[in-house]
């Protein structure tokens, strides 16, 4: 049997491809880091333009709902005006308290600002432009400037990092329902969905309740906004309620994030 180079060309190419893939896995971090480093300026620009263009088109698609929305907003506006007067007084009180407590995000945590450069299509994870070179460590919590929880650092490369969003399937952390002293476990369901688990049937939770992180479990710092309850389902045969949380973050509007670098579990 003679070996024909021409006939076996495809076989040789396939073997070479397999060898190339195997060898790339040995330098995986370096290879990925290299591509992210050279692509960062383009990705940053694409991410910003993506937000701008999608907002424009979503605006056009929603024109038919604008009239109804406008009427609802007028009513809401009247309600808010009344509320505003009360809040003005509270604001003054709050400002005085803040000064007294010396409260501020940068004072509470040590933060590193980073910019989003990409999102994985099928997973709840984001890529940001800060890595081990900037002192980022695995499992560091990530928040927005409004003190809203985004997720935690999953992988750190030299020049960039991967954030697993709070809604990722792997994520579960303790939370509390605002002003109700009810503690539970928030579980990521993937696809930007989050549920509240381990809440007994007798606890009174309604849609619209705000959910914050709690210190138990030590996954995230306490008092970070997680989201709002959007669905509560009670059942006599189940020990716990089925509760759905709408995460407070909206990936489409995010550009800059803050990584907490001094959080110790």
């Amino acid at each position: 049997m003679r070996f024909s180079l021409k006939k076996n060309k495809i076989l040789i190419v396939i073997i070479l491809v397999i060898l190339l893939i195997i060898s790339l896995n040995f330098f995986q971090r370096g290879v990925k880091n290299f591509f992210y480093l050279i692509s960062e300026p383009i990705q940053k620009w694409l991410w910003r333009e993506g937000i701008r263009v999608s907002n424009f088109f979503e605006g056009i698609l929603e024109i038919k709902n604008l009239k109804i929305e406008n009427e609802q907003l007028k009513l809401k506006n009247q309600e808010l005006l009344t509320e505003n007067t009360e809040l003005e007084e509270l604001k003054k009180e709050n400002e005085a308290l803040r000064e007294a407590l010396n409260f501020g995000l940068e004072k509470e945590f040590e933060l590193k600002i980073c910019e989003i450069i990409g999102k994985e299509i099928s997973q709840d994870s984001l890529f940001v432009n800060k890595g081990s070179r900037d002192g980022i460590e695995k499992d560091s919590p990530v928040i927005t400037q409004q003190k809203t929880l985004v997720g935690k650092i999953e992988k750190v490369y030299e020049n960039f990092s991967e954030i697993k969003l709070l809604t990722a399937k792997e994520n579960s952390f303790s939370v509390k329902v605002f002003e109700k002293d009810i503690f539970g476990l928030a579980r990521g369901k993937g696809n930007l969905k989050l549920i509240l688990d381990l809440i007994p049937q007798e606890k009174e939770i309604v849609t619209g309740d705000k959910v914050f992180t709690s210190a138990e479990g030590g996954v995230f710092p306490k008092n970070l906004l997680v989201g709002e309850i959007i669905k509560v389902k009670k059942s006599d045969i189940e020990p716990f309620q089925e509760i759905e949380i709408e995460p407070a973050i909206n990936i489409k509007d995010l550009e800059s994030l803050f990584i907490i670098t001094n959080f110790k579990k």
Partner: peptide
């Protein structure tokens, strides 16, 4: 790939590969 991971991801109607 850059277009898909950084630009098209913002469009809610975009779900394909």
């Amino acid at each position: 790939t850059l277009l898909e991971t950084s630009f098209l991801i913002h469009f809610s109607l975009y779900f394909s590969n």
